[in-house]
Design a protein around this nucleic acid. Sequence first.
DNA 1: TTATTTTTTTAGACTTGCCTAAAATTATAA
DNA 2: TTATAATTTTAGGCAAGTCTAAAAAAATAA
Lengths: 216, 216
Amino acid sequence: MNTLAEENYLKAIYKLSLTARNVSTNQIAAELATKASSVTDMVRKLADKALVNYARYQGVSLTKTGEKVALNIVRRHRLWEHFLVEKLHFKWHEVHEMAEEMEHISSTELINRLDAFMGYPTRDPHGDPIPDCDGNIKASALKPISIVKANTSGVISGVGDHTTSFLQYLEQQKLTIGKRVTIKEIIGYDNTVILEMDNKQLQISREVANNILIAI
Amino acid sequence: MNTLAEENYLKAIYKLSLTARNVSTNQIAAELATKASSVTDMVRKLADKALVNYARYQGVSLTKTGEKVALNIVRRHRLWEHFLVEKLHFKWHEVHEMAEEMEHISSTELINRLDAFMGYPTRDPHGDPIPDCDGNIKASALKPISIVKANTSGVISGVGDHTTSFLQYLEQQKLTIGKRVTIKEIIGYDNTVILEMDNKQLQISREVANNILIAI
DNA sequence: TTATTTTTTTAGACTTGCCTAAAATTATAA
DNA sequence: TTATAATTTTAGGCAAGTCTAAAAAAATAA
Ligand SMILES: [Mn+2]
Ligand SMILES: [Mn+2]
Ligand SMILES: [Mn+2]
Ligand SMILES: [Mn+2]
């Protein structure tokens, strides 16, 4: 149906569309580590296939069809990540690169059986919601720790940064999905956040607090 | 390391090498449903990478390195087939196409964990041996039913034809891996074989008998 | 052994996806 | 509002992998 390159572009456009209605050529190029001119070429092809809306110099958005395709790729990516962590016991920072390859395995039946095999998980190892087989996805109302008020308590439910180094740091600090934390104080000077977790206190930087998402 | 196309060529050459020392351009073209001229191009590239021995008009053979790479692809293919049947409950005739894609997932650690997850299986759903992580593979001494003498008994342990239609036919007849059969008689006229299995008699054609492999 | 057929390689071309450099357009600043 | 800067597109090109048609080599037949 769609080539590997096309799938990667659609997923990138989907991701960028979460924080912008119209995605720019340069944003896509940065996301995919490619050049703006390559993006222009590909976006034209995707527009010909009616997967994106595109007018030159105006940026790109997914069509309804394009969004469905993108959600399907996201579904595959996240289900494979879940499999790698839950069944093959990889750590949450180890799975993304493998899932980048596995998300392109095309069989729908395969992915639906994988879903069933794992008991229809709703979230991937990083807390991101897994779209169902019809492309429905739960928009989770999570907040970065950095913006909640002092004395608020919540459960770590997602991360805003998926890099290996960040995930490894969180794991080392035991700041993992499902942990309950209470924001005790935000220091005015540099926005350092003082947390309480497991009856112990710990401090995290503004940068880290920005990338830990909690459900209140 | 190697591209998807290169991997497919190496696997094809490996397969053809099981029944010929030097594989011809046309044989590879037929196996991969491509043209002889394309094969010549690719075989040159593989020779440059020291994965095959090649001299024009002389055919192709795998180098030691090339064989190791090929065995690794075969390992991945067969482990994924085993996963699809044993964990996701696909039928043995449904898994080959999916495994054709999955065999190209590159992580060695992934495949080793998958191997462990399934308890280090030694054979794929079609009875073919699975190479271990060092590329060691057991050459199985199986015989087609068509060449054994009357009153021989053996266990179905492999198939010589992996097409969907053949596998479906075998399943319908309950002629599956692990079943014990006794060859009662081979009719001289058209080489029809009369078998006994589960205390019942059944007849199979010479063609079918040729493609059922038994261990005696 | 020479002629014919088959196999394999070469030549030239096409598509996909990518690149650099230059031109066009849009955004920002003076 | 005009000049400058940033973004985006166009133009031209390259590598991988494929194809068709023609040439070369090898195998087979007369
Ligand atoms: Mn991921
Ligand atoms: Mn994820
Ligand atoms: Mn197979
Ligand atoms: Mn098999």
